[in-house]
C-alpha cells in the first residue's frame, strides 16, 4: 500500500525542501521505493538539494500536460537505489498546475512507489493546496520561532479542511517535525521548547532536528544529509523520524553532534 506524504509549513525557509530530501533518501535507504515531488512551480529547488539540477529534462507540468510520459520525467538518484525525483517546472504561470492533472499524476505515482513525498511551496496559495490535497499524512515542518509556529497553525487548519481526506470526512494525520532546534538555547529560556511548540500546535511529534552546520554542507554538496553525512546529528534525527513513519517505536531524543577533539581544535583555529 503506497503512502502519499506532504511536507508543508506555511512559512518559507524553515526546512521543507531539506526535510523532503532527507526523509525521501532515508526512506529509500531502508529499501523502499520513493519519489520526491517538487510542487514549488516557478521556484524549484528540490532538484538542487538532491544534486540533480543538471539532469532535469521534463518536469511535473510536462507530465500533467502530457508533453512527457511520467517515466521520462522521473530522475533516478545515482546514490540510493529506489529513490527518484520529479522536478517542478520553472514556468512563471502559476495556473499551470490543475487539480485534475495533479490527481492523475499522483495516481500514477502511487502505483509505482511505496512512498510519494510531496515538497510543498511556502504560503497558503494554490501550489500549497495542491501539494497537500492528496496526502495521507502531513509532516508539518516548524522552527521554534513565533512566526513559524503561527504559520504552522494556519497550515494545520487547512490540512483539516482543504484536503481530499477532509472532504471525505476523514481525519487527516499530521505530525510535527521541529527543525533548527537548539537544546542549549531552549534550556536557557531563549528559545521555545519542544513541549511549548507541541502544546500550542497539539499534533504528535515526528522528530526533532537539531540546528547544525551539516545541513548547509549537505545542500552545498547537493546531497541529502542522510547520504552526505549519515552519522551527523540531523541525519540521525531524520533516520529516526523515518522509522517512526514506518510504524516503529523509537525513543524521542535530540541527537547531538559528536565532535572529535581534532574538529573542535580546527573550528577554534578558524574562529
Amino acid at each position: 500500500m503506497s503512502k502519499v506524504l506532504v511536507v508543508t509549513s506555511g512559512k518559507g525557509g524553515v526546512g521543507k525542501t531539506t526535510s523532503t530530501a532527507a526523509i525521501g533518501a532515508a526512506l529509500a535507504q531502508t529499501g523502499q521505493t520513493v519519489v520526491v515531488v517538487d510542487f514549488d512551480v516557478g521556484l524549484r529547488n528540490l532538484d538542487l538539494v538532491m544534486g540533480a539540477e543538471r539532469r532535469v529534462v521534463y518536469d511535473l507540468i510536462n507530465v500533467v500536460n502530457g508533453d512527457a510520459k511520467l517515466a521520462q520525467a522521473l530522475i533516478r538518484d545515482k546514490r540510493v537505489e529506489g529513490l527518484s525525483l520529479l522536478a517542478a517546472s520553472q514556468t512563471r504561470d502559476k495556473d499551470a498546475l490543475t487539480l485534475e492533472g495533479v490527481t492523475r499524476v499522483i495516481e500514477q505515482l502511487r502505483e509505482k512507489f511505496d512512498w510519494v513525498v510531496c515538497d510543498s511551496p511556502a504560503g497558503i496559495e494554490k501550489g500549497a493546496l495542491l501539494a497537500m490535497y492528496h496526502a495521507d499524512l502531513a509532516v508539518v515542518v516548524t522552527n521554534p520561532e513565533v512566526s513559524s509556529v503561527r504559520d504552522s497553525d494556519r497550515i494545520i487548519g487547512m490540512l483539516d479542511s482543504k484536503t481530499a481526506k477532509a472532504e471525505r470526512g476523514e481525519k487527516m494525520e499530521k505530525v510535527l517535525l521541529l527543525t533548527r532546534y537548539d537544546q542549549a538555547r531552549a534550556a536557557r529560556g531563549e528559545m521555545l521548547k519542544v513541549e511549548d511548540v507541541l502544546e500550542i500546535l497539539s499534533i504528535p511529534l515526528l522528530g526533532i532536528v537539531p540546528e547544525s552546520e551539516e545541513v548547509l554542507r549537505a545542500s552545498n554538496l547537493g546531497s541529502p544529509i542522510v547520504i552526505s553525512n549519515p552519522l551527523s546529528a540531523p541525519a540521525r534525527a531524520y533516520q529516526d523520524a523515518v522509522k517512526r513513519l514506518q510504524g516503529e517505536t523509537v525513543t524521542m531524543h535530540i541527537p547531538v553532534e559528536r565532535k572529535s577533539i581534532f574538529a573542535k581544535f580546527l573550528s577554534w583555529r578558524v574562529a
Binding site: G189, E190, L192, D196
Partner: peptide, 18 residues
C-alpha cells in the same frame, strides 16, 4: 535572555483568536 516564555504566551493568545 529569557524570552521564550514571552513567545509562548504571545502565541497562545494570538492563536486562540486566529
Amino acid at each position: 535572555r529569557n524570552t521564550a516564555p514571552v513567545a509562548r504566551e504571545r502565541l497562545q493568545v494570538l492563536l486562540a483568536h486566529e
